[in-house]
Design a protein around this nucleic acid. Sequence first.
DNA 1: CGTCCACTGGAATCAAGGGTCT
DNA 2: AGACCCTTGATTCCAGTGGACG
Length: 414
Amino acid sequence: MADSIFKKYLEKKNNLIKNRGILQATYVPEVLLHRDHQIGEIVDIIAPSLNKDKPSNILIIGQTGTGKTAVVNYVGHELEKADIESNNCRYIYVNCEVIDTPYSILYNISNQIITDPNKKIPFTGWSLEKIFNELAKYIDDEDRVFIIVLDEIDMSFKKNGDDIFYYLTTINEMLKKSRVSIIGITNNSTFAEKLLSPRIKSRLGEEKIIFPPYTPEQLIDILNNRIEYALYPDVIDNSVIPYCAAISAQGSGDARKALDLLRISADIAERNGDSIITSAHVDYARQKIELDAVVEVIKTLTEQSKIVLMSIIKTPSSNETGSVTTGDVYTTYIELSRNMGYNVLSQRMVANLISELDMLGIITARVKSFGRGGRTKEIDVNKVSNDVFFILSSDDIFRGVDFTFKPNKQTTLM
DNA sequence: CGTCCACTGGAATCAAGGGTCT
DNA sequence: AGACCCTTGATTCCAGTGGACG
């Protein structure tokens, strides 16, 4: 019998990581450190639901990795436990970043409630009004208080406006027996002020709870708490935890980032066969995370976006700072997509795609005025790392594409 | 100080493609 | 089969604008 190709992994026993799941950011620990205050507030607000009274709607504001989702889900599950006998409430969670159209949000909420597989709502085809009425009917039939959590609410908001949220917050007017209260979660602090229209602002923001970023000390606590169960004893250098905490704290007090950093550091150390995790591993991990993020973003780009990104890289800069403008990129883009046999999008579209790439953090662009020279986006080519080009050029759609054309000359021909 | 460039940013619109319903 | 509905991607239109130039 030949050796398993996994032989070296079978033989090499894990000597650092005891339980890697605990280091995943999605893992919800038994105790949520440094969030007692927020937990208490939410509990106070939604407790009336246990007696079938409608709690106030809540708007939760805090940056990524500050424990918003974890806290809400924790409280939600505790609520269900406390309610197990009287059965007066129901907790429903929807992540609006994943489920991001009005239809899919209603569809998702409804099908969490509808148990009969024959009555489930089809994933497309119905009018919104019809789903909404159906949803209201099912909710009312349950004769309970529904706590509906809409996570990343600003994501859907940006794309679709606030209509669904308006309907959801007014659903109580259609109900005779049941009640619905909404918990909205956003990491955009300006969301509550600017994006929310007046008609929904007062409804959704009946109560507001702020999740401040974790301080470095708090992050250290959180990490220490996790490694106790996640790692074997004495496998980590003293400097590692404070280092991870410091790196993550300077950004936004992001616990998710800190955990990722620690987990990947441990991975790297273990794969290397090192017996102890050091801050050098953390440095590697940090680079790896950054690179992975770029790879991931590029992979999920649409073909047109990839072509635009390539155009940005391939556009020769006309000034000393090494930046290019929308117009320059567009001429390159026309050339490139023609060469590749793709249809050519309008300049307005390409401008949109450039803005999108900017938001994704792959490029940096800012609007700049050149006086009479016009107003345009100045795109920094230097900041586009070699990694981006390398990853991008290995993409399938660029296979066999000839990049030797000289856009700056050819534009004058047209 | 006003002009005026080369876009930006927002919104309305269209077409195609996924469906359901009667 | 025909009427409707939602989503997505793209197009078209248009009012605005920061600031160098004259």
